[in-house]
Design a protein around this nucleic acid. Structure first.
Lengths: 203, 203
DNA sequence: TTTTAATTTAATGAG
DNA sequence: CTCATTAAATTAAT
């Protein structure tokens, strides 16, 4: 099930968005309490309170989490799995230090929710920071094979002490990056790509 | 955490390498000169140059005009279009002093390219300075919707005389800022946010 | 020094 | 899988 706000985030659609869009594109009168002038900041602000609830998915979720509201269990963060997992096998010292600092001032539960907040609201996986060696190995493998099969990925995962999933994602992102660079160099230097087949397109 | 060079210490490296090699080349015999060491990045690297170029649309003209096709163009400094611009209207004294010193030894042209290199040693977009009105409008829109869709962004871009890209980046940075501030206030006053509804959440 | 515009990339979800 | 998009973590200009 999708988290509340998730749809909003991915489609950029919400009440505020729609109304704002209408206001911005058409100067129609609205039943909303904000006009295009207010949107554009051309009107004197009389109240600081927006007519619509701001769209802040991560805050919404944090509120739910902190309050432990079970009616929104669809928003729950798979905290546990991250807690004990290997995700932070290569966590950086900075974050470790932060956590250690917390220990002195907060309860375990509080620390948990702080850590939870450090990652994203749905328990978005903490961003993996590959070290130099990992990157180098991955790049070298990529040079030879940008579509490594499951066996190679597993092998890499084991050798580099990473989840196979991280490897997979890395290769996906790496392929996307390569593709983008190709697109861009074509755009930047069309004459090269046009001449590469020996065609005389410009004379 | 995987230490640098840790993989070299692995005892099963050779056997593993062999299978990796087989896996990597899959079905075909390797006509390439890659060894397993090179695959795993254990060989001396001779180039530190990234395989792909960054996206620098505003440099397109320069790249094409000045450099033409150059596989290392990401390292190059664009020469033409920013020469006469306002970007360096207020250069700092330190830099000025350096330049004066240089005067004794370098030609005007060399000095120019030195200056250019200082500020353009990487092809980074010149920092946009939003004016007060632009900020105000952006902030007002942000209050209602921190994820404006493409239509609103385009509209804003037109109304504020900015690239849509600037708008997009602004909102990204603005969201990050909001989130950061939220995180910080929770860190500073966890009891407030946790007890704000008077609930006993932890017992 | 602080703030924030710009960049790179890991993670995510839809197609 | 691709592709577009997002947030995290930076870098660098002011």
């Amino acid at each position: 099930m999708l988290a509340e706000g998730e749809i909003m985030a991915s489609t950029s659609l919400c009440a505020a968005n729609t109304s704002a869009s209408q206001n911005l594109s058409e100067n129609k009168t609205t039943q909303c309490s904000f006009s295009i002038e207010s949107i554009l900041g051309l009107e004197q602000k009389k109240d600081g309170i927006p007519a619509v609830k701001p769209h802040r998915p991560w805050m919404d979720a944090c509120t739910n989490l902190v309050l432990g509201d079970d009616s929104n269990s669809h928003l729950q963060i798979p905290v546990v799995s991250y807690e004990n997992s290997l995700f932070h096998a290569n966590s950086d010292p900075m974050q470790e230090e932060k956590v250690l600092k917390c220990e002195k001032y907060f309860s375990v539960t509080e620390r948990l929710s702080f850590k939870r907040e450090l990652s994203w609201y749905r328990g978005r996986r903490p961003r993996t920071a590959f070290n130099r060696n990992q990157i180098e190995v991955l790049e070298n493998v990529f040079k030879m094979n940008s579509y490594p099969g499951i066996d190679i990925r597993e092998e890499l995962a084991h050798k580099l002490d990473l989840d196979e999933d991280r490897i997979q994602i890395w290769f996906q992102n790496r392929r996307a990056k390569l593709k983008r660079s190709h697109r861009e160099s074509q755009f930047l230097m069309p004459e090269v790509s046009m001449h590469k087949d020996g065609l005389k397109l410009f004379k």
